Amino acid sequence: MQSVSSTTSPLIIAGFQALSDPLRIQVLELLRSQELCVCELCEHLGTTQSKLSFHLKALKEAELVRARQQGRWIYYSLNLSQFVVLEQYLSEYRRFSPILPTRVCRDEV
C-alpha cells in the first residue's frame, strides 16, 4: 500500500484542508461572484481582519484564492484552476473505484 504523502500532491492536501473550515467556505462563497477586498470580506462575515487574515493565508497557500494589491487594499478572487485540480482528483475516485454500486437503468426496473 502506498502512503498518502507519496501519492498525493501537497497542494491537493492543502486544498482539502483549506476547504475543511466553515469560515473559509463562507469566504469562497462570497468570492464566487466577485472580487472583494479584505474590508468587504470582514464586513460580510462579521469578523475581524486579524481573524480573517489567518484564513485567507490558508486559502492562498492552497492556491484557492488569488490576491492583488491596489493601493493600500488587497483584493481577493477565486483561483478557478485550482478548483479544477481538486475536482479532477476527486473524479478519479468516481471513475476507478471498484466499490461503486452498479448503476441500473430505470427502464430495467
Rank of each mutant, 00 (worst) to 15 (best):
Q2K: 15
Q2I: 15
V4Q: 03
V4T: 07
V4E: 07
T7H: 12
I12M: 10
I12T: 09
I12Y: 06
I13V: 13
G15L: 04
F16E: 10
Q17A: 08
A18K: 03
A18P: 04
D21W: 00
L23G: 00
R24E: 09
I25T: 11
Q26P: 02
V27R: 01
V27S: 06
E29S: 07
L30S: 04
L31A: 14
Q34L: 06
Q34R: 12
Q34I: 04
E35Y: 00
E35S: 04
C39Q: 13
C39T: 14
E40C: 09
E40T: 09
L41H: 06
H44D: 04
L45M: 05
T47L: 09
T47Q: 08
T48C: 10
Q49Y: 00
Q49N: 04
S50L: 07
S50P: 01
K51T: 06
K51S: 07
K51W: 01
S53G: 05
F54I: 10
F54E: 10
K57C: 04
K57N: 10
A58F: 15
K60D: 04
K60L: 05
K60P: 00
E63D: 10
E63T: 04
L64H: 05
L64N: 03
V65M: 13
R66D: 01
R66K: 08
R66Y: 02
R68H: 12
Q70T: 05
Q70C: 03
G71T: 12
G71K: 09
G71D: 06
W73F: 09
I74P: 14
Y75S: 06
S77N: 08
L78G: 06
L80P: 10
L80C: 11
S81F: 05
F83C: 02
F83D: 00
F83M: 01
F83I: 01
V84F: 12
V85P: 03
V85A: 01
Q88D: 15
Q88Y: 15
Q88L: 15
E92H: 07
Y93I: 14
R94N: 12
R95V: 04
R95I: 02
F96T: 04
S97A: 06
S97R: 03
P98C: 13
L100T: 07
T102D: 13
T102V: 14
R103K: 10
V104L: 07
V104P: 00
C105H: 03
D107F: 09
E108V: 11
V109E: 14
V109I: 12
